[in-house]
Amino acid sequence: MTMADDRQERIRNRAHQIWQAEGQPAGHHERHWHQAAADIDRDDATGKSAKKPSKKAAGADKAKAEPKEAKAAKKPSKPKKAAAK
């Protein structure tokens, strides 16, 4: 696949995403195509990838949150005020 073919495929995929996001309206294919081409060109100029990492893959390197019980054990308890008589 040539670079031009790859670009066309990326534009086609992006235009389809735009079409779906707008509720699949009829008769707007040219606007979707031009918007998709602009998006792809902007991504290429800024060095962004067309594919975004999945949420699972993006968070795979993050440590798991500490359990609530462990957090509660670390918090110092506040002294209770004596009731006024």
Rank of each mutant, 00 (worst) to 15 (best):
K71S: 01
A82Y: 12
A26Q: 08
G47W: 00
D61V: 01
A65Q: 15
R12P: 04
T46G: 00
A65Y: 02
K62E: 15
A36L: 12
Q17P: 03
G47S: 02
Q24L: 15
K74F: 01
A84P: 01
E69F: 05
D5E: 14
W33F: 03
A21E: 13
P76F: 05
G59I: 06
A60T: 03
D39F: 00
K75N: 05
R10C: 00
K80N: 12
A15P: 02
K81L: 10
A57W: 00
A37P: 01
P25A: 06
D41S: 01
E9Y: 01
R42C: 01
G47L: 02
W33Y: 13
A82V: 15
M3C: 06
W19D: 02
D44A: 09
A70I: 14
K56E: 08
D41C: 02
K52P: 00
K68C: 13
D41Q: 02
I11N: 05
R14H: 07
I40E: 06
R42W: 06
W33R: 15
D39S: 01
D5Q: 11
W33G: 03
R10Q: 12
K80T: 07
A15L: 02
Q8W: 12
D5C: 02
Q35L: 02
D43N: 04
R14C: 11
K52S: 04
H34R: 15
I11M: 04
K55A: 12
D6T: 07
R14N: 06
Q20L: 14
G23K: 07
K64D: 09
G59Y: 12
H16D: 13
H32F: 11
K64W: 01
P53H: 04
A63Q: 09
P25D: 08
G23E: 07
E9G: 04
E66K: 12
A15S: 03
K68L: 13
A72C: 02
A37Q: 14
S54H: 03
A65D: 08
E9S: 07
I18P: 11
D6V: 04
A37F: 03
A72G: 01
S77Q: 15
A70Y: 05
S54P: 01
T2I: 03
K71C: 04
G23R: 05
K51D: 05
K80M: 10
E69I: 10
H28F: 14
K85D: 11
K85R: 12
G27D: 07
G59K: 11
K81F: 10
H16S: 01
P76K: 14
D44M: 06
A26D: 07
A70H: 04
P79K: 11
E30A: 11
K62S: 06
I18M: 15
A38M: 11
W19I: 00
Q24T: 13
Q24G: 11
H32Y: 09
K81V: 08
A38W: 04
A65L: 13
D39Q: 08
Q17W: 04
M1P: 14
H32V: 03
K75E: 03
